[in-house]
């Protein structure tokens, strides 16, 4: 019997919920995805005890990669406390005995995320798993999957670039806010999942491995460490991240921790004013702690 397949507290679950065969298949797909950066590797996505679209693609990756001693963090739009993140975290805790969970980015060995990359730069020993609803960036210009495969194979992205051209014609800038098409290692263009533009440059030559899992569409792809990730753009209309400056041109700060170099979410206060706060809650907590300890020292 496989050392990994012990049962949990009387429940008949295999460690990591998936059977060992399913895990092996996913790991094989992961190896292939790493070997061909940006290529969408098909795999037999399993039924999970939650609706597809709730991150089952990311969860299957996490469960296939997780081992005893793993420290897992689960976030949804930067937050560890959202219902979706809490559910996934509880599921992992229940099905993976011996695995601990954390909200601290720095402590995690494996981070599963929806719609954000943590602000804190990841390290070579960390893996980031992103949940993907729509894996193929070409789907907006070509309905046939067979034709899309040929286009990917030949790196034929001219129709995607025309979209950008039309965007500039209409709006004087590229308006794509999320899922920004990004060319990996000079060939395949990926949909980097609905992360904001802010996060895209942080895929480029990242120290950590980033894996993308699309459960419904049954695809896995990867941006391996130290790999080029270039958002599609024109040489004279470069890619830009979100601009968090106010009308006076000053960089907005997080209302909670004061940070001026993080991705900010916009809220409306009770008084109806716009308030900005770090989208990455762990980052915000950390900044706040440091601020408070500095204040403590000063006192």
């Amino acid at each position: 019997m496989n050392a990994m397949s012990h049962t949990t507290g009387g429940n008949a679950y295999n460690f990591g919920f998936l059977d060992e065969y399913a895990k092996k298949e996913i790991r094989r797909a992961v190896l292939k995805a790493i070997a061909i950066p940006g290529y969408q590797v098909p795999y037999a996505s399993r039924e999970m005890p939650m609706g597809r679209g709730f991150g089952t693609g990311g969860l299957q990756l996490t469960l296939a990669l997780i081992g005893p001693g793993e420290v897992v963090k689960v976030i949804d739009q930067g937050s560890d406390d959202s219902v979706n993140a809490v559910n996934l975290r509880q599921f992992i805790e229940m099905t993976c005995p011996g695995v601990s969970t954390t909200t601290r980015t720095a402590e995690a060995s494996l981070i599963q995320s929806r719609h954000r990359i943590p602000e804190r730069p990841l390290t070579p020993t960390q893996i980031l798993v992103l949940q993907v609803p729509y894996p193929d960036p070409l789907v907006v210009v070509e309905p046939s999957e067979d034709k899309r495969k040929i286009m990917h194979g030949e790196a034929d992205y001219s129709r995607l670039l025309v979209k950008l051209y039309e965007d500039i014609v209409q709006f004087d800038e590229i308006t794509i806010s999320h899922r920004y098409p990004t060319r990996i290692n000079g060939h395949y263009v990926i949909d980097p999942s609905p992360i904001p533009r802010w996060d895209v440059p942080r895929l480029d030559h990242a120290a950590a491995l980033t894996l993308f899992g699309a459960g419904r569409e049954k695809k896995i792809y990867a941006v391996p460490p130290h790999t080029r990730a270039e958002p599609l753009a024109f040489s004279d209309v470069p890619f830009r991240v979100e601009d968090f400056r106010d009308a006076a041109g000053r960089r907005r700060a997080c209302a909670r921790c004061g940070c001026t170099d993080s991705f900010l979410d916009e809220f409306s206060s009770d008084a109806g004013e716009k308030v900005y706060q770090c989208s990455d809650t762990d980052w915000c907590d950390e900044k706040l702690l440091r601020k408070e300890s500095l204040r403590g020292e000063a006192a």
Binding site: S158, L161, E166, S235, D236
Partner: peptide, 18 residues
């Protein structure tokens, strides 16, 4: 657009300057 149709062909030949 008409211009976009022509742009597509130019983009196929790797002209990347808007």
């Amino acid at each position: 657009s008409a211009g976009g149709n022509i742009a597509e062909r130019l983009l196929m030949s790797d002209l990347m300057d808007y």
